[in-house]
Design a binder for these strands. Structure first.
Lengths: 251, 251
DNA sequence: GAGTGGTCTAGACCACCAA
DNA sequence: TGGTGGTCTAGACCACTCT
């Protein structure tokens, strides 16, 4: 059984996918769809809302319902991509990475587990915003254990817990300088629909999920040096990994 | 300005998050919410629909609107996790990996680019379903160039283009046996809302995005041996990568 | 059968944008 | 000012589940 609003949604989706309504154009206005399909306003709205939740269109008050550009981000299949890249799609937009908040805090249970620290441990907590163009593409929560942050402060003079003290060099280099070179990290990726806070910060359109990355960075003795949680707008970010395999060499 | 339905959605979300309505329980029925907030039926439905689209609840006809278990999948922060794992969350459920379709086809533009093949090249195309428990967790589309598939057929006798010919050994081992050992792969991950087909195949609840992985596997001369597109239900799958870093050793 | 959610209507009012 | 989408109502009927 397909309902009335599903019929309408399917018909509109077909026309979006076959190019009848190309990206940037508008689908017919609600009153027009009401006449076309001889249904009530709310029925049309149900259909349009569905398409919005699929990420296909963005309704704009006073303007119309415009078709979004959902071009797959999968451009740039160069075999030599770096381990972690921004999307190639939009080319030369300006990117930045700013520390918004920083300070000491008592780590909660989750962070303690990730960093393998005893209960009550102090850590440096930093919040970073990574932007591309005018929009925030990614929010990063980062935690660094006491002894690592202190070592960096003593060696390089950089106070990680001070948001105004902008570090020019990246954290991994600072760790290395402080005698804690990172050897590997482990990244776990999942995605889900955003909560209202995330919608606000990332300025997410309806129907765009967030991609979450949990990272733990460790040294060559498998001792955690840092952990971070990345929350990325999935229409602005993708991640690429290069994974070494071990075949044909005695395995 | 917060609208009436947003108020209701926010109130319900708060109670879900603070544990008043724990996972598996039901939020109040629509008629009850109508009385509580003194609004019309559609207004309540709007609020509930929103929560469903956020992935927090699943309305069930004849039953009620139940709170979904959104426990983060981030369990198992063992520093020694394998490069690619199923979620640890649900423990010992049975998993399977079945070839649903297989055959030769002329590769389209996208696949040609990934495999660095000339126009008109023939490839083996396989569709696999990876299930956990009763549900399909992941759909895999896989393409293998002519010369690799032929080499495997000649060496091992396994016909990749035959869905009924179930291979017991995995593809990477078959490649290695056929003289094409894979050296590394590159995986690009993004996520988006599912289209209706994906909703049907993966039996996705409302509000659950799909996580897409594009993989290209290459040999030590950077020649592509295989490419695949994974479409995973993001509430059933997460991916973990272990990334080697290069600090403190002359860099 | 009683209770749940799902669809749909006809009409109203509001917020927003562009000419 | 006229057209766009967004919210809300009061009521109806339907599909489904459980007892």
């Amino acid at each position: 059984m397909t309902t009335r609003w599903q019929e309408i949604a399917n018909a509109l989706r077909d026309r979006i996918e076959d190019g009848t309504y190309p990206a940037g154009s508008k689908i017919p206005a609600i009153p027009e769809l009401m006449r076309d399909y001889d249904v009530a306003r709310e029925t049309v709205r149900q259909a349009v809302t569905r398409l919005a939740n699929e990420g296909l269109v963005t309704p704009l008050r006073g303007v119309g319902t415009v078709v979004r550009d959902t071009t797959p981000v999968q451009l740039g299949y160069t075999a030599s991509a770096p381990a972690r890249t921004w999307d190639v799609q939009t080319g030369e937009e300006k990117t930045s990475d700013r520390v918004i908040e920083a300070g000491w805090e008592t780590a909660d249970e989750d962070i303690l587990a990730r960093l393998q620290l005893p209960k009550g441990s102090q850590v440096v907590h930093r919040v970073r915003h990574m932007t591309r163009g005018q929009q925030i593409a990614q929010v990063v929560d980062q935690w660094i254990p006491d002894h690592v942050a202190t070592a960096i402060a003593n060696t390089t003079g950089d106070d990680l817990a001070d948001a105004n003290h902008q570090q020019s060099t990246d954290l991994y280099s600072q760790m290395t300088a402080a005698g804690h070179p990172p050897a590997w990290d482990e990244e776990t990726i999942r995605s889900r629909m955003p909560d209202p806070d995330e919608v606000a910060v990332l300025e997410l359109p309806v129907g765009v999920p967030v991609q979450i990355t949990y990272r733990v960075t460790s040294n060559d003795k498998d001792q955690p040096l840092e952990t971070a949680t990345f929350v990325a707008a999935s229409d602005r970010m993708s991640q690429t990994f290069r994974v070494p395999l071990h075949y044909g060499k005695g395995e």
